[in-house]
Simulated assay, not measured.
Amino acid sequence: MTTAFHHVYGPVPSRRLGRSLGVDGLTFKTCSFDCVYCQLGHTTTHTIQRREYVPTAAILDEIRRKLATGDRPDYISFAGSGEPTLHAGLGDIIRGIKAMSDVPVAVFTNGSLLWMPEVCEDLAQADVVIPSLDGGDAALLNRVNRYVAPLTFEQILDGLYAFRDHYAGQIWLEVMLLGGISDGNDAVDAIAAHAVRIRPHKVQVNSVCRPPAESWARPVPAPRLLEIRQRLAAALPCPVEIIAEHLDDMAHTTFRTQIRDEDILALIERRPCTAAGVAAGLNIHVTEAIKHLELLVADGKAVTLPQDGEVFYSACELRTV
Results as ranks from 00 to 15, higher is better:
residue 1 M to S: 08
residue 4 A to F: 08
residue 5 F to M: 13
residue 6 H to K: 09
residue 7 H to Y: 14
residue 10 G to I: 10
residue 13 P to S: 11
residue 15 R to M: 14
residue 17 L to S: 01
residue 18 G to F: 11
residue 24 D to K: 10
residue 28 F to K: 04
residue 33 F to E: 00
residue 36 V to H: 02
residue 37 Y to A: 02
residue 44 T to I: 15
residue 53 Y to G: 02
residue 54 V to S: 05
residue 65 R to K: 14
residue 66 K to T: 10
residue 70 G to E: 01
residue 74 D to V: 12
residue 76 I to G: 03
residue 76 I to M: 01
residue 77 S to G: 06
residue 78 F to D: 06
residue 80 G to P: 11
residue 80 G to S: 08
residue 81 S to F: 11
residue 82 G to K: 06
residue 83 E to D: 09
residue 83 E to M: 12
residue 85 T to C: 10
residue 88 A to R: 12
residue 92 D to C: 03
residue 92 D to Y: 12
residue 94 I to S: 02
residue 97 I to Y: 02
residue 103 V to I: 14
residue 111 G to H: 00
residue 112 S to V: 11
residue 117 P to Y: 11
residue 121 E to W: 00
residue 124 A to N: 09
residue 127 D to C: 08
residue 128 V to W: 10
residue 131 P to H: 01
residue 133 L to M: 14
residue 147 Y to C: 06
residue 149 A to T: 06
residue 149 A to F: 15
residue 153 F to P: 11
residue 162 A to F: 00
residue 163 F to E: 00
residue 167 Y to D: 03
residue 171 I to N: 00
residue 176 M to K: 01
residue 177 L to C: 03
residue 179 G to K: 06
residue 179 G to T: 02
residue 184 G to Q: 08
residue 184 G to R: 08
residue 190 A to E: 13
residue 191 I to R: 06
residue 192 A to S: 05
residue 192 A to H: 00
residue 196 V to M: 08
residue 203 V to L: 11
residue 207 S to R: 12
residue 208 V to T: 13
residue 217 A to F: 05
residue 217 A to G: 12
residue 220 V to C: 07
residue 223 P to D: 03
residue 229 R to A: 04
residue 230 Q to F: 02
residue 232 L to K: 03
residue 238 C to R: 11
residue 238 C to G: 01
residue 243 I to K: 05
residue 244 A to D: 09
residue 246 H to P: 03
residue 254 T to D: 07
residue 260 R to M: 15
residue 270 R to P: 05
residue 273 C to M: 15
residue 273 C to V: 07
residue 274 T to S: 12
residue 274 T to I: 13
residue 274 T to Q: 06
residue 275 A to E: 11
residue 278 V to L: 10
residue 282 L to R: 09
residue 285 H to G: 13
residue 286 V to F: 11
residue 287 T to H: 12
residue 288 E to P: 00
residue 290 I to H: 09
residue 291 K to W: 09
residue 301 K to D: 08
residue 303 V to E: 05
residue 305 L to W: 07
residue 309 G to S: 05
residue 312 F to T: 13
residue 312 F to C: 13
residue 313 Y to C: 11
residue 316 C to H: 12
residue 318 L to G: 02
